[in-house]
Write a protein that binds this DNA or RNA. Structure first.
Lengths: 301, 301
DNA sequence: GGCGCCCCCGAAAATTTCCTTCACTTTGTT
DNA sequence: AACAAAGTGAAGGAAATTTTCGGGGGCGCC
């Protein structure tokens, strides 16, 4: 199994709440209690010692240290420092902005405001948590790829198509697959110079893991875009790009914010590749633009 | 040791440099060196232990602790926490340096920051510009629709599919069409209680205007989601929802921000409809969630 | 100019905090 | 129902922080 958390994982300064949400599902109950306390009251927790936080959460010191490790810090001491930083930011920076959940009887204007705010938050979290090392490696792989296959089903399938459309525009040979059977069939064709990308929020969608595994075993470079970097999909991924997880609710399915997050990652990949292959990408971009022009009616003005 | 400052001396959060200057005269030489290091590079010092800082300043641990005391903290530990906070503040302070356009030689980290910032901006613009009256009317039409057809080609086609997926989840009968011929063929079937939605950034994409026109003439309620509310598509739209247009550049095609904007509008429509039809939407949502559960491998943990 | 007092300073001990190991409990499995 | 695997906390060990204490060095006084 490959390294799940790419080599140098710099501790997140601001995007801690997001990281907690991302990793919470893979935590044990006790660790979740600690993570919750930490995310809920950074300032308060920063004032506590390991022992203090252990008592507050009704757990043991060992658990607190374990949680700190899981969040990417060498130990509790460093988590505490990050917490102090976060607290300072919240204090001085913009308001904590505790947006309420969307209610059934919210006026439509509130819905717009809340959704926009949430998606903005998701973008910020994603950008902060995105591992640029992994991203750079993924871009490099794509830039030199002979062929690119992208797997995604459901909402992630649309993201896969979006990426494919973009890559095609800059001259890469890319295909999106949402049919698991066809995906596997195609994955068999992949070899060393090819790239396979699996997009799954849960990190455990069998239908996209399977083709990725096949591609992986055939020697292709594999990339996973997932909200659960510790999920099964990462087993077969050379590079893992983590999307952030926003709190969801009944009226705001997880698919909504995960899609926003995934699209940002996809855009980053696209722009990164366009940069690397600028010589060929630029003309290809304008060519595709030209080609579309005549499909538009002689617009007004 | 005795109390230096009588009552409650609150540790300085941000105004540390000032405090150093104020107290510098009353410090001994060694302490000044420590204070100087601390004020000069908060982030760097926050990463050091007492011993480390003592070595850096060529002094002893005891002196470091004494300095921390003089600055108003119970000990070095707390000074260090304050330092971490200060560093975080400084860090976030110089954030808005990413507003420039994306250049070919931008490091990948800048690309991420710029893209995220831009999309956030697009969301804010869209939310601000969205006409809630029109949105409300569109929601009402959708909530009572017998059948919904959504037209979109290219990048907008994916948005159309996204909307369709969502509406299906809450029990509506929705179809996305990106084939212009089939779209028209289907549009002919629409009648009074039906809704047709055209998604086009340019507002002048013939392939989606045509089916919308047909639907309009057959008495269906028509909705246009477009970045050009004055474009041809609006002729045949009962309700026009405007998406915002962000500046684009060579490496950042218009499709990118228009997509973000369109998706926000689509999400608003979805949540709005879900609210109106909560009685049926809620069970449908959980049902579709349940149905997917078994498609996921028994994740880790 | 020498002497002695007082304050500054750092080495090392004492203490607190943090981390690791290990054994016990719980949970899920066959 | 027994086994295996993972989760959890207690206790011991390591590392940090704080305190203590004695050795210089400056400054005034004689």
């Amino acid at each position: 199994m490959k390294e799940i958390f790419g080599g140098a994982a710099p501790p997140a300064p601001a995007a801690l709440a997001a990281k907690v949400r991302t990793l919470a599902p893979s935590m044990t109950r006790s660790m979740q209690r600690v993570a919750e306390a930490v995310a809920g009251d950074p300032a308060g927790c920063a004032a506590l010692t390991v022992t203090g936080l252990a008592e507050l959460t009704g757990t043991s010191e060992a658990t607190v240290v374990r949680t700190a490790r899981l969040l990417g810090y060498p130990g509790y001491r460093d988590l505490r420092l990050a917490l102090a930083g976060l607290a300072a930011q919240q204090q001085s920076g913009r308001a904590p902005a505790v947006t309420a959940d969307i209610a059934v009887d919210d006026p439509i204007a509130d819905v717009v405001a809340k959704l926009a705010y949430d998606e903005q938050q998701t973008l910020a979290d994603t950008a902060a948590a995105l591992d640029t090392i992994q991203l750079g490696a993924a871009v490099t792989a794509l830039a030199g790829a002979r062929r690119v296959d992208v797997y995604g089903v459901g909402a992630s399938g649309l993201v896969a198509q979006d990426l494919t459309q973009k890559l095609l525009r800059i001259g890469l040979i890319a295909h999106a697959h949402s049919d698991p059977h066809l995906a596997v069939t195609n994955a068999v064709q992949l070899a060393a110079k090819d790239v396979a990308i699996a997009i799954t929020h849960s990190g455990s969608t069998g239908d996209v893991i399977e083709p990725l595994r096949v591609a992986f075993e055939h020697g292709a470079t594999t990339i996973a875009i997932t909200g659960r970097p510790d999920g099964p999909v990462s087993q077969y991924a050379d590079h893992v790009l983590t999307t952030s997880t926003a709190r969801e609710s009944e009226l705001r399915p997880a698919a909504m914010s995960s899609r926003t997050s995934q699209l940002l990652v996809v855009d980053c990949l696209f722009v990164g590749v366009a940069q690397r292959t600028y010589e060929t990408a630029a003309p290809a971009l304008s060519a595709s633009y030209e080609a579309l022009a005549h499909r538009h009616r002689s617009g007004p003005r």
